[in-house]
Nucleic acid binder design. Sequence first.
RNA 1: GGAGAGGUGGCGGAGUGGCCGAACGCGCUGGUUUCGAAAACCAGUAGGCCUUCACGGGUCUCGUGGGUUCAAAUCCCACCCUCUCCGCCA
Length: 428
Amino acid sequence: MLDLKFIVSHPDAVKAGAAKKHIDCDIDRIVALDSERRELVGKVDAARASSKAAGKKIASATPEERPALVEAQAAEKAELKGMEARQKEIGDELDRLLLLVPNVPADEVPEGATDEDNVEISRWGEPRTFDFEARSHLELGELHGWIDIVRGARLAGSRNYVLIGELAMLEQAVMRYAYDSMVEKGFTPLSVPTLVRSETMVGTGYFPGGEDQAYKCDERDDLCLVGTAEVPVTAFHQDEILDGSELPMRFVALSSCYRREAGTYGKDTKGLYRVHQFQKVEQVVIDVADDATSLEHHREILGNSEAILQALELPYRVVNVCGGDLGQPQVQKFDIETWMPSRDSYGETHSASRFHDFQSRRLGLRYRGEDGKVRHCHTLNNTVAASTRMLIALLENHQNADGTISVPGPLQPYLRGRTALGRPVETR
RNA sequence: GGAGAGGUGGCGGAGUGGCCGAACGCGCUGGUUUCGAAAACCAGUAGGCCUUCACGGGUCUCGUGGGUUCAAAUCCCACCCUCUCCGCCA
């Protein structure tokens, strides 16, 4: 969430930010509540001070003086109680409203309503032109007996799948390669829970608002399945005051990811593009509260993922996500879209976000700087590799006329030296 | 699932009604000492909110929320969380 002081002192900037994101929130109400709160705090504090002083007087009073003093204090306390009740009301409403105020997008974020308004900022590689009739990942999967959608659905409903044989191996190869690459760059590997308390979902900004997209196990346990390792990794140090000299902290985690995909019926129904469960390697940076530094690290984690795609010879482009396509918590987001021949377009495979202290405030994630001051950390994250979408890109981009799949060099060691997957079939 | 213990500052850990936002230790910061460092010694060192140009002042917080009391970290109630033992199990 945003700092209440910031909202009150820059209400127009916050309103403009919300408008840019196409999100409604009641800033005027917050400003009004805060001014009432301030006024009340002064009175309440004064009344408490007076009551305390009266208490000390009572303690040292003679038995004869006592009853009168106690009675006088009681009247004061009754008034105090009324003010405290109102103060709590205001506090509760403010807390509720503050959770709904979106982070202010950066100036560099383009205006726009949907992903169609995202602005391409760079491009790497050339989409391949096939001199044969290229197959979709689903066709390739069926051809080799690698993907079983029917049994996946029988096991777990629609948008589920089973990977078989070499494709299951390839999945592990990509995950391991992505993971190892990040460890090599100095990121600390973390293996984290994927079932978390709902307060952790609130802390990272997914709740309130994203409840429909999460699987909840809250009837008995108040737990949710995470949609990304970002959640447990970012919240790893919640409610702590870190030593500033330890920052930035760089983490990498591999986890299963669970997404309900509510409201997407009929969208991307074929294949592995939009599924309820996949694996993902995620990078997270816990940073100092300095815009220039966290911006630099935002570029760094974007570059880390680009390096993976380049090593795997997958053409991609980077887009600067527009206001309307930005989530509530982000200041800015760069999506990487990788070329997917069957879609005849670039499909989103990575998402690099920076949040300033939006998540940290909710999480109580702070650090003590060199000057001794305590500040909220900045947080950042980016996909390193998401299993299903990477498999789509790898299968479709590296397919050969005979149906085999060439394995990019970096993945070969993870596949016991294999340079191609699948048995050759009829060339078409 | 059964039984028990406990949640205190950056960390460890005292504290069972006022002298406690809190002993002591560690850590950190500054100083003395030293050619420099280590060690030793001295001093300082929780966070939030309100107020102040500032120095400062006020107030809240000892898991959370209520209650008792003139007065609560300390007593009572509810809830949350953690740990230990037994059982079951990957």
